[in-house]
Design a protein around this nucleic acid. Structure first.
Lengths: 237, 237
DNA sequence: GTAGTTTTGTTGTATAGACAAGTTGTTGGT
DNA sequence: ACCAACAACTTGTCTATACAACAAAACTAC
């Protein structure tokens, strides 16, 4: 492996295991250069690339620091709904309806890379904004990658928070649909009359594979997705 | 301005005015270095950064080339629906229902940075997949930035294709909602019974400002949005 | 002619050094 | 107590050079 890549690996590992928390200083270019017996330009390149990847931020004259881990993706940020509600200045709460182990349905098995009827963890949660149901979250979690899932207290943190913490997510696959809610969904979202709902199907991956598959359903009248997205990179100078 | 930035500007301008088309060669590091009287490392940096921005691609031992302008955005690619349908191997067609100049409604005016009741271009198009209506596109276009919009033949190319060609888009803002279609929409999408629809509101920008605001409505049973998206940059090495 | 070999040109990695530019803390002087 | 000057440290830009890795074209031997 190239030297600059080794230094990147080192820095990443220190961040991942928590030695260097958010906003803490990372060694300066000169220090790294000496530690790894490379030239300053090589150490610099490692810091530079990590900065471009959003993992560090740097200020001239001051130093290099670990960036906040919060994802700042352009569109459809994967932030948990709790943060989203808090950022609107509203009260967030959740009701855990179910948290069990199930024999894995075929669809889920193929999505998570499990065997049919192998055990899979399942949770069902209603997220509330100012005590009004906003989103119904049905989530299947791979027991191989997250063995302790069913022993968590999801009144303390959302499944998404827990999963992000346990297994750093690398990727997510999304599907957005407009659907007609079934009776079960209506009941838990307190919809007197059925109305079009937005359903976000989200499959998340860590380095080891597919972690979880979540169906997030919210009434169209109360929830929408938005954001910015760079399109034509040409003009992006 | 820094030297490497000047070189970037130069390369970008050559690409933008069409001197260097897609997949054509750009000067090598050494040539640029000599032309601009800088060291190879400086010229290299310009090429390097443009590569990271997706504007160039390079292969060791071969050279540097202008990347395809096609957007390859992660989620919600801004590709026109015609391409999308073609890529599914289906037949695409469109019906132009309206193409006029209107006094600008207030909502549109604020979105496009126009004055209330100033003229705005409006087009209404149904996109069909295998002769079945898939999406209804209502689009408002700024006459300031795209004065020739109403004189186009949108049976030849979609508005999105035309706009991308005329004014290179820099950004897009999206809103995704699940809505209940009105009678008008139902009629043009040939929905016998109303069903939940996915509505994508898309506002596009060029360097000069907001170009157009489009409402894209499609039946939930026939249309959905999907894609991949990198999330947690930490593990993205 | 065809298969190997060499040459040439390109990008990729790395070094050692220089100066510029920005921030922070220290040191004096008033 | 305040301010100014300075020193120390950091990141940012740039140079000149060297060698490695790779690809394509040119050349050579058969």
């Amino acid at each position: 492996m190239a030297k600059f890549a080794q230094i990147k690996e080192y820095i990443l590992s220190q961040i991942e295991i928590g030695v260097w928390p958010e906003h803490s200083r990372v060694p300066s270019e000169n220090v790294l250069a000496e530690q790894f017996s490379v030239s300053r330009m090589t150490a610099r390149r490692a810091l530079q690339e990590l900065t471009e990847q959003g993992i560090l931020y740097r200020t001239q004259g001051v130093g290099s620091f670990v960036a906040a881990l919060k994802s700042q993706s352009s569109l459809l940020e994967i932030r948990n709904i709790a943060d989203e509600i808090h950022s609107r200045g509203h009260a967030y709460s959740a009701r855990l309806l179910q948290l069990t182990e199930l024999p894995c349905p075929a669809v889920i098995a193929s999505a998570l890379g499990l065997k049919r009827n192998e055990a899979v963890y399942f949770s069902l949660i209603v997220h509330l904004e100012n005590n009004q149901p906003l989103q119904l979250e049905a989530r299947y979690v791979s027991p191989r990658l997250v063995p302790d899932y069913v022993r968590q207290d999801f009144n303390q943190q959302t499944p998404h928070q827990y999963l992000s913490h346990i297994a750093p997510l690398t990727e997510a696959e999304h599907l957005v649909e407009a659907i007609w809610p079934d009776d079960f969904t209506c009941r838990h979202l307190l919809l007197k009359k059925p109305e079009p709902c937005l359903r976000l199907t989200r499959r998340t991956f860590s380095r080891e594979g597919a972690v979880s598959l979540a169906y997030l359903t919210a009434p169209g009248s109360r929830y929408r997705l938005g954001g910015y997205l760079n399109v034509n990179l040409l003009a992006n100078r």
